[in-house]
Design a protein around this nucleic acid. Structure first.
Lengths: 254, 254
DNA sequence: TCTCTATACTTGTATAGACAAGTAGTATTA
DNA sequence: TAATACTACTTGTCTATACAAGTATAGAGA
């Protein structure tokens, strides 16, 4: 009879390493390639050294270099073509829908340039409905912000947020033209749970003007509620013109 | 100068295989283990044969069995504990797959009284783009269906699907007024991976008439590609009037 | 009875070598 | 000139072997 001890986390691999070599060899090769990509020494579509070259450079066998490159392929950092070579992967221009990534990261991963305009930043008492959504007492003070995000000048998103002050007490003091609210919130209060609602709408005139769209342009409205630090944290509406924005996500089982 | 050919999909590995052995050895070992898991022969927490045993059983070297089990670990099908053994993983109750389900069942698990009209059900040769999306050769035959779903008579969704016949060979023989395509597909080919794109659009006139909506009504269009049985399985477009449907989902992190 | 140790198993890493298969460019041939 | 063959390179698979490291159990010794 086999009794398993708690099989939750292992993660710590083990060996092929000594005190001065805290990582396995294949892992060091991986990190070296990642460093070259992230430092900009290797740009998208650039050729990555071949297995043979890496093996020689690290005094490893080809199989070890192979393992490093194979894992990087699975992680979508590189692209391998049999008979040709290995190349730095171009980041996919996709917004991960449910991974909570910020719009600026998405736009910049796409190759655009992101700017934000702060239209409103205030502290207001929560109405009954909003208080319930943020799990606060009615009338409690909450932070409220409205931003317009642009990609090379073209508006791509109107975002309105209500924030539970317990979760991000310094929210009002931030300069959201530099760091987006979602980046800031991710920093101070990482999301534990999220609830999304996605609708196709025609926004009212005020918002249409902010987004610079015609009267009948359909928009995607993502209403999101998040929890962080074991509390309801934010309630927000993100509205994007359908002609300029889509949500994408890819999920694996497991 | 290196000129890359279109680096979109590879997926097709290559060799170590002959006519009678269309898959690589490590792949056959993987599939064998997966079969045992999905058939119920191996249940969660059951011990999977060790690398040595698998190697002997498949007349392979231990490294080949190791590769098979390593990949299954990355796919979260099994759990390996150094020094102890390999065990069937218990599916996480709040894993990524549930996220898919919560989105798709939300839109397809219809409350109230649901009816479906089969507008089209046919077999057609795939064009170039569709063939690439289904990872098939251009011109290969694929199944094609168009359904209109109604809730108490009101159209709520126009769904168009392209199906890889390898994954669901009996697709055309189903009566989709009784079991929805997605329920049927979930039965015969459980989704391993899914890719979603969500857009706000104004559909063309034909679809607008099917959905019985006005000229400028915004609609939610969910374009979805799924993988099952280690193949691209379906490519579909689900269009719902924004005034009658929204997507909802709630997700936990980690 | 309790503790330690040896042993037999497991997975993890790494090697050197081999062949298969795909690609690009060059040289050869018709 | 155009088609073909060859070559040099790439990645993909697989083997046989080796050692490191973690775990469980049986048996020896206190």
């Amino acid at each position: 009879m086999i009794v398993l001890r708690d099989p939750n986390q292992r993660k710590t691999a083990c060996m092929g390493r000594t005190a001065d070599q805290p990582f396995a060899l294949y892992e060091r090769i991986k990190q070296s390639v990642i460093r070259d990509i992230e430092s900009g020494k290797l740009k998208p579509d650039d050729r990555v050294p071949s297995e043979t070259q890496l093996a020689r450079a690290f005094n490893a066998s080809r199989m070890t270099a192979n393992r490093a490159l194979k894992e990087l392929t699975e992680e979508n950092r590189i692209l391998r073509i049999q008979g040709v070579g290995t190349f730095v992967a171009r980041p996919k221009p996709e917004a991960a829908l449910l991974e909570i990534r910020s719009i600026s990261t998405e736009i910049e991963a796409w190759g655009g340039s992101h700017t934000a305009e702060v239209r409103l930043l205030e502290e207001i008492p929560a109405g009954e409905d909003l208080a319930r959504k943020l799990e606060l007492a009615p009338g409690a003070l909450v932070f409220h912000s409205i931003l317009i995000h642009r990609d090379r000048g073209t508006p791509v998103q109107y975002s309105e947020r209500y924030i539970n002050p317990e979760v991000a007490p310094d929210y009002l003091a931030q300069d959201f033209t530099i760091v987006t609210p979602s980046d800031y919130l991710m920093e101070v209060a990482p999301v534990q749970e999220a609830e999304h609602k996605i609708e196709a709408v025609v926004p009212d005139r005020d918002i249409r003007e902010c987004l610079d769209i015609a009267a009948h342009d359909p928009c995607l409205m993502l209403t999101r509620r998040t929890w962080a630090l074991d509390r309801a944290a934010t309630y927000s509406r993100l509205i994007s013109p359908g002609s300029r924005y889509t949500l994408k996500g890819r999920f694996k089982r497991g």
